[in-house]
């Protein structure tokens, strides 16, 4: 993902995202997912595989995930065309690996879809929670707290399961020196992508119109603000 402070620009007549000069980071929600996975596997209770769909330029970022504590990594060697494409790659790989839990972030902060987790679960015919605030795993079931409008819902479900993680699921783990050293020797397998029919494509981008400059109101005349909100902005 582009770092959140990056300036977002487009080229080729506003059809392509300009990645030149942009600093790339692990999606902040994926850091949460990774930290939760490492936490669950700690003490030999399991292993963690990191999967990324993208080209070789992301390998440094994948090594960072290994440094946080994942055991191995897989890179599906293809540009991440859209969520449906990515989900098919994840589901195809997961199908014969018998994972108990597939964690994703709640959304990618570039294309902001919240599509991948439910797509993956549907492709595998297993339960899913797209935006989870808390996850507890026991032998063959999970208790998950998910966000709903104005509150939360607590549910239990069976494994295998797909969960999109939001803030609160785990504290982001920072790699230590040992992690960074061992990350270099952990396996990073590159596999080819499966073919997927393309059903959607982004054609162009526009940047939102800048707001007209701020109208300042004197702090001793707040009644004027109320009047403007009513008669000019028409929001009250």
């Amino acid at each position: 993902m582009p770092d959140t402070t990056s300036k977002i620009t487009f080229s080729d007549n506003n059809s392509t995202f300009n990645s030149a000069g942009v600093q790339f980071i692990i999606n902040p929600y994926d850091e949460i997912a990774l930290s939760k996975a490492v936490e669950l596997a700690e003490g030999g209770k399991g292993t963690v595989t990191v999967l990324h769909v993208g080209d070789a330029s992301s390998e440094a970022t994948i090594r960072k995930a290994l440094a946080v504590g994942a055991d191995e990594a897989v890179r599906v060697d293809a540009p991440a065309r859209d969520a449906w494409f990515v989900a098919n790659q994840i589901a195809t790989y997961a199908k014969d690996q018998n994972f108990d839990l597939i964690l994703t972030g709640r959304e990618s902060i570039d294309y902001n879809g919240t599509q991948v987790p439910a797509f993956v679960a549907e492709l595998l015919s297993i339960p899913s929670v797209s935006i989870a605030k808390k996850i507890d795993i026991s032998d063959s079931s999970a208790t998950v707290e998910r966000e709903i409008e104005g509150g939360k819902e607590i549910l239990t479900t069976s494994l295998p399961l797909v969960v999109g993680t939001a803030e609160g699921v785990a504290e982001a783990k920072i790699p230590n020196m040992r992690g960074i050293m061992t990350a270099r020797t952990k396996p990073l397998n590159v596999i080819p992508a499966v073919e997927v029919a393309s059903l959607s494509a982004i054609k162009s981008y526009e940047t939102p119109a800048p707001r007209s400059t701020v109208k300042l109101i004197d702090k001793d005349n707040v009644a004027q603000l109320v009047e403007l909100l009513h008669s000019e902005a028409k929001v009250i």
């Binding site: 582009p2 959140t4 977002i8 570039d110 294309y111 902001n112 526009e206 939102p208």
Partner: peptide, 9 residues
């Protein structure tokens, strides 16, 4: 997209 920094068609 891009955390509200752009609008995609």
């Amino acid at each position: 997209v891009f955390s509200s920094k752009a609008i995609a068609t």
